[in-house]
Simulated scan of single mutants.
Amino acid sequence: MRTDVEIKEDVLDELAWEPDIDETQIGVIVENGVVTLSGVVDSYSKKLAAEKAVKRVKGVRAIAEDVEVKYGISYKKTDKEVAKAVIKALEWNSAVPDEDIKVKVEDGWVILSGEVAWDYQKKAAKKTVGNLLGVKKVVNNITLKKSIKPFEVKDRIRKAFARMANVDAEDIEVVTSGHTVTLKGRVSSLQEREDAEAAAYMAPDVYDVVNELKIQYRAEYA
């Protein structure tokens, strides 16, 4: 099992490796595999990049994120300007049914609501908005529409795992109940855990994924 000191060193190195991140702006604390990030960055996309960098590190079991986004005076935008930019960006993204999404902006916080047919559309909306100037945080309250006909969800998910180089399908059990999928078993990193969940959400007629995958470094169960 990796020590907190080893994990922290790798987290700091991974942050330094990211070209969009100034690692000197971010504080890192590791306790029992839980990484706490703190500090201030000047864009929401940098905040997300820091989180993704940490998830790639082996031994990280969870992230407690307390990084604040603060724009300089010259970059400050009104909520009305941010809202217009959000709506325009959603319109330009072909993966997002913008007519089904409602936008609300409060002090730089963007709240998305509405209904879409697929989980990837919900995630695409958040990703599109998160890169815009003036956005401090994105709250994704978009829900999924109910469909009628169920498919062979379990089989499709397992085939998706088999196609993914970074997900070991042999250690993952897929349990289906109606439109809910439960993932059980073990993975080697937080990123692998999230990738497995994302793959499950991509299957037809899946509205909810219960992720019970345990993070366990491969050497621990070799």
Rank of each mutant, 00 (worst) to 15 (best):
A50H: 00
F151Q: 12
I87D: 12
L144R: 00
I73A: 13
A160H: 02
V40T: 06
E51R: 02
I73V: 13
V67N: 01
V129F: 03
V34W: 03
V103Q: 02
I73M: 10
E6N: 06
V67W: 00
E18G: 01
D107I: 04
E23V: 04
G134N: 01
E81G: 15
A49W: 06
W17K: 07
E220P: 09
K80P: 11
I26Q: 02
T176K: 13
K80A: 15
I21M: 01
S45L: 11
R61T: 05
W118A: 10
V187P: 09
Y75F: 14
E115D: 07
G134R: 00
I157W: 02
L15S: 00
G130V: 04
N131I: 13
S74H: 10
I157F: 02
V175I: 07
I26P: 01
R193P: 04
V54A: 02
I87C: 10
G114D: 10
L133C: 12
T36A: 00
P150C: 04
S45C: 10
E152D: 12
V116F: 02
A117T: 08
A89Y: 01
K102W: 12
T128G: 02
E192R: 11
D205S: 08
L183Y: 11
E9H: 11
E197F: 11
N93W: 06
G134Y: 00
V35Q: 01
K154L: 07
D66K: 01
F161Y: 13
K102D: 14
K184P: 09
D100Q: 06
R163Q: 12
D208P: 04
R56E: 14
S147D: 09
I101A: 04
V96F: 02
V41A: 01
Y75C: 12
K136W: 03
S177M: 09
D119S: 06
K88S: 05
K159P: 07
L183P: 04
E220L: 15
Q25E: 10
R61P: 04
V96C: 02
E106C: 08
V105L: 11
S74Y: 09
V96P: 02
Y207D: 05
E212H: 09
P97I: 08
S147Q: 09
K8V: 07
D79A: 15
K88V: 06
T78S: 15
A117Q: 11
D107S: 06
K136P: 03
E220V: 12
S43M: 04
K55Q: 13
D13C: 14
D79T: 13
V103T: 04
V30C: 00
K122G: 00
R61E: 08
D208E: 10
E99V: 06
V116M: 03
K102N: 13
E173T: 06
N211W: 07
Y201T: 05
S113V: 06
K80T: 12
A89N: 03
V5W: 12
E23D: 12
A89F: 04
M1S: 09
L37W: 01
K84C: 10
V210P: 03
K52V: 08
V209Q: 03
L183K: 10
G178E: 10
E197G: 12
I215D: 09
T128K: 00
K145G: 07
T176I: 08
L183T: 05
D98W: 13
G27P: 00
T176Q: 10
V138Q: 02
K46P: 05
A219H: 11
K80M: 13
A49F: 03
L90C: 03
E212R: 14
K80I: 12
S45N: 11
I148K: 15
I63G: 01
Q191L: 15
Y71P: 01
